[in-house]
Design a protein around this nucleic acid. Structure first.
Length: 932
DNA sequence: GCAAGGTC
């Protein structure tokens, strides 16, 4: 069997389709992995890298004393499978193979991915010949020729890729761990460092600093209006920018009518048709349609998967000769762009446009099938249309402009007007994305004298360089060799998710700045694109066998060791510098009580709140939702009422939760509970708010004199308010106890969240453990609870409630446990069950039991049970057990009816004792025989 | 928990 291994599933499918010629390959799906079989051949796709490089075991603890960040520099690395099912399937197929062809992409990573596949095959089959097919496009011509003349795998090139992997891992991981630990950041808050991301971030930070340091310079410009009989036009002073006002004013004064035409220059300007799309050019064009880099890539990927466009990750800007351009045109005639296609076919340029970069990986992005609007959503359609129009434009003739320039004299001052007119539309007919700006001018003759209608002196200022847009940044990254066609947009995404940058265009955050500055001071190499450039050079030399992989990695390790010397010597300073510089990121505004700063703070648990930096002198604080809902971060929006920054909660995998102004939120979420205070009024609430009292808790903890003084209400009213607040607080405490309990007992289900169940409880008047313990099952069953759930909830609630109650009455916890274990769980049990029985069942001393019964009965207002002393009980017991046929078990039962002595037994009514104890009355009568 | 590189 002949095994073909491609870089991805679609490539395997398409290659099989071409090689199978007229037959259709049969598709088999095993554990989510497709294979395509035809003749005696099987094609399978990888998923890019199917193994991953990592440190050998033992290095996973960041805080290990022995395996420090620095120790990662010389740590051994291993390759571990990330796509186990694919690896397994390849091993299985390799055993049966008598020939293997690796058909991964024709670039460096493709060669490394090929080597990974090679190693997987070799592990399962020591002898099978393994060859390499190289092709730049999955076209019939290229595929047939590549498979007819298979070559060898380039192990040197693959090793160059491996060197990159090791260098990236040890630099990235060691520096990330070091700087995160120094700045005391963990979890989803780490500070990452990498060969590509750090220089990219540094560019954004540098640009921001340039903008901050920029001092605008004023300049002046002079323009005037004139007219012929037909039309008005504008002319500008040829000086352009006047850098000093006086000379501008002199020229303005010197400008005198008439405006005389001195010179006329006519010309043409070629407007070149655009070059084929590589990934970067595509992202730039898509950004003009309003798409972010990652959206642009996502949609292109989607269109590629559906067969509408070619592979979107390419560095190539030159169509390979194997690409059937005419065939694509024919196909596109079936699309809504039929008219454009026909125009291009009729006016085609001799050869398509070419960009500056050619590569072997993939052809430039081009359409591969006709589509119509209904096949996809609106944005995807816009992207498809862009790719089609770009393709058509690369086959279209250049456009041509006619230009016209007049030079004038006005009292010795030189002026000029320029105009342009589209002379030949060319590619602009099909590529409609850049508006051709025509500038019309009247027809003038040399020496013609014209009036000056108006003249203006405008003061302007020079502008700072702009912030990077995503697409501009990707262009610059490409120029500097940072990242690849497939990863550049991801790197930008990473900077966002680490909260190093924000906004569009990109602006660095304080964290992004602080990290960049620390790295520039102590690990400068990682912040510069030079590191990538050197690495590329070394990789080239590994490929040519001039250098070995090991020597390149070793040299890199030594450089990193040097860097770590400086880092470790300054560890504390680096950490505190980052922490100081980023503290402001948590400041949300001024404390309304004392005027100091308010900061987002986190407790050791998951709790988050906004607290005053004046603490403990000022205790003003605002609670925030627990960290499980997301980490609270400062938003740039400012509340118009309170002047505080808005708060956002961010959590991996969920959209951010905008809390808005924390104080507005605090106020509205506490309004409901404030209104639970009976004597509160709307006016009083706004009165309290204006004195920064927002919660029931704050009222309950106020001092009456102070409250009265601050709010102007009487001292009596203040006292009442505080008392009522206390009661509401108690009510809320009970409610929260009920909430916790229900959460513990009842599992949430679809359509039955805890919040929903609790709301139903509250509506039914079940607001605390007591009312739940007293609620009847019928009521509970109405609340989306099953009969069993209602039963268990009610039972558990009674237990919890009674235990709390009995504890409150004064029954000690240790004894309480014994009562509960023996099944005595209500206050009634203490008063209506004879103490002797309780004592016998719990093993507690009768005197102790009596004491407990007494306190419970007194608290519940029930008469005390009969008192029996320990002595009486002991002697009674001996008496009773001496009766024939009366054993321990019978004795316990008799205790239930209060029969604790022979005397009691003899004077009792057998029927009644039988009812209380379950002992047959004949037996009682029999025992009573003894009394005679 | 870390990088960058593939791919989904």
């Amino acid at each position: 069997m002949h095994l073909i291994i491609a870089e991805k599933n679609i490539a395997a499918q398409r290659i099989a389709g071409i090689l199978a010629e007229n037959k259709k390959p049969s598709v088999k799906r095993e554990e989510g992995v497709n294979t395509y079989s035809f003749d005696d051949k099987v094609a399978i796709g990888l998923r890019g890298h199917v193994v991953e490089i990592d440190f050998e075991p033992g290095y996973s603890n960041w805080r290990s004393e022995t395996h420090t960040p620095k120790s990662l520099i010389d740590a051994g690395t291993i390759k571990k499978p990330t796509e186990k099912r694919i690896v397994q399937l390849i091993k299985r197929l390799a055993k049966k193979a008598d020939h293997v062809i690796i058909a991964t992409d024709f670039d460096r990573e493709g060669e490394l991915i090929g080597k990974e596949a090679y190693e997987i095959v070799r592990a399962a089959n020591k002898t099978v010949p393994i060859k390499r097919a190289r092709f730049s496009a999955i076209t019939k011509q290229e595929i047939t020729s590549a498979f007819a003349n298979p070559a060898e795998l380039d192990f040197n090139l693959a090793e160059a890729g491996e060197a990159r992997q090791v260098v990236d891992l040890i630099w990235g991981a060691s520096l990330t761990r070091f700087i995160s630990l120094a700045a005391k950041r963990g979890g989803n808050n780490i500070l990452s460092v990498g060969r590509v991301q750090s220089p990219t971030l540094a560019m954004i930070v540098d640009r921001e600093k340039e903008i901050e340091a920029f001092v605008p310079e004023p300049y002046w410009m002079i323009s005037l209006d004139s007219e012929t009989e037909e039309e008005k036009f504008e002319a500008r002073h040829t000086e352009g920018k006047f850098w000093d006002k006086e000379s501008a004013e002199r020229s303005l004064k010197g400008t005198k009518e008439p405006l005389t035409v001195i010179d006329i220059k006519e010309g043409t300007r070629a407007d070149h048709a655009p070059t084929p799309f590589d990934t970067t050019a595509y992202i730039v064009a898509a950004s003009r349609l309003g798409l972010s880099a990652s959206n642009a890539m996502r949609i292109a990927e989607e269109l590629y998967m559906n067969g509408y466009i070619s592979y979107p990750r390419t560095d190539n800007t030159i169509y390979p000769s194997s690409l059937d351009l005419k065939g694509i045109l024919t196909e596109l005639k079936k699309s809504p762009f039929k008219r454009e296609v026909e125009w291009v076919s009729a006016n085609m340029r001799p050869s398509p446009t070419r960009g500056k970069k050619s590569s072997t990986d993939h052809p430039p992005i081009h359409p591969t099938a006709a589509a119509s609007k209904g096949d996809m959503d609106e944005t995807a359609w816009k992207v498809y249309e862009l790719v089609v129009r770009r393709f058509l434009a690369t086959l279209s003739p250049d456009a041509r402009w006619k230009t016209l320039k007049y030079t004038f004299d006005a009292g010795g001052e030189p002026y000029a007007s320029t105009g342009q007119r589209l002379d030949y539309e060319g590619y602009r007919i099909v590529y409609t994305y850049s508006q051709a700006k025509e500038q019309a001018l009247p027809v003038l003759a040399a020496g013609e004298k014209l009036p000056i209608l108006d003249i203006r002196l405008e003061e302007k200022e020079t502008l700072p360089p702009p912030r990077y847009s995503q697409s501009k940044l990707i262009q610059v990254m490409e120029e500097l060799g940072l990242g690849t066609k497939s990863t550049r947009h991801d790197v930008i995404g990473k900077l966002f998710s680490r909260r190093y940058v924000e906004g569009n265009p990109l602006k660095p955050t304080l964290v992004g700045r602080a990290v960049t500055e620390s790295l520039e001071d102590h690990a400068g190499l990682i912040t510069k694109p030079d590191m990538t450039r050197t690495l590329e050079e070394h990789m080239e030399e590994i490929k040519k066998s001039i250098l070995s992989k090991d020597s390149v990695v070793q040299e890199s390790r030594e450089m990193l060791h040097e860097i770590f010397e400086s880092l470790e010597a300054n560890q504390e300073d680096i950490g505190s510098e980052i922490m100081d510089k980023t503290a402001e990121e948590r400041v949300v505004g001024k404390c309304p009580v004392c005027g100091k700063s308010l900061m987002i703070r986190t407790t050791k648990g998951m709790a988050q709140f906004i607290g005053c930096t004046g603490y403990p002198d000022c205790s003003f604080n605002i609670g925030l939702p627990s960290g499980q809902w997301g980490k609270a971060i400062r938003d740039n929006k400012i509340c118009e009422i309170h002047g505080m920054n808005h708060i956002r909660l961010v959590r991996k995998g969920s959209p951010p939760w905008d809390l808005g102004c924390p104080l507005c939120n605090h106020i509205s979420s506490n309004l409901e509970t404030l209104n639970m205070i009976p004597s509160i009024s709307k006016d009083l609430i706004s009165n309290l708010h204006s004195h920064n009292i927002y919660t029931v808790y704050e009222i309950a903890n106020e001092n009456p004199e102070k409250l009265s003084k601050v709010t102007g209400i009487s001292k009596e009213d203040s006292e009442k308010l505080i008392r009522e607040a206390d009661e509401v607080l108690e009510l809320l405490r009970k409610r929260s106890e009920l909430k916790k309990f229900v959460r513990k007992i009842i599992p949430p289900k679809r359509g039955r969240s805890h919040a929903k169940v609790l709301n139903m409880f509250f509506d039914a008047g079940i607001v605390d453990m007591e009312s739940l313990a007293r609620a009847d099952k019928k009521t509970l069953e109405k609340m989306k609870l099953s009969a069993e759930e209602a039963e268990s909830l009610s039972h558990e609630a009674r237990l919890v409630y009674n235990k709390a109650l009995l504890k409150e009455y004064g029954v000690p916890a240790v004894s309480l446990k014994k009562y509960f274990d023996a099944g005595f769980v209500t206050p009634e049990d203490f008063c209506y069950i004879h103490p002797a029985y309780l004592s016998a069942k719990t093993g507690l001393n009768i005197d102790t039991v009596y004491k407990h019964a007494a306190i419970v009965c007194e608290a519940t207002g029930v008469r005390l049970p009969e008192k029996v002393s320990k002595k009486e009980l002991e002697s009674g017991r001996i008496e009773l057990l001496s009766i024939e046929g009366l054993g321990e078990a019978m004795l316990e039962k008799l205790y239930m009816a209060g029969i604790v002595s022979r005397k009691k037994l003899c004077s009792a009514d057998p029927e009644q004792i039988s009812k209380l104890t379950g002992i047959p009355s004949e037996k009682i009568t029999y025992f009573q025989e003894e009394c005679k």
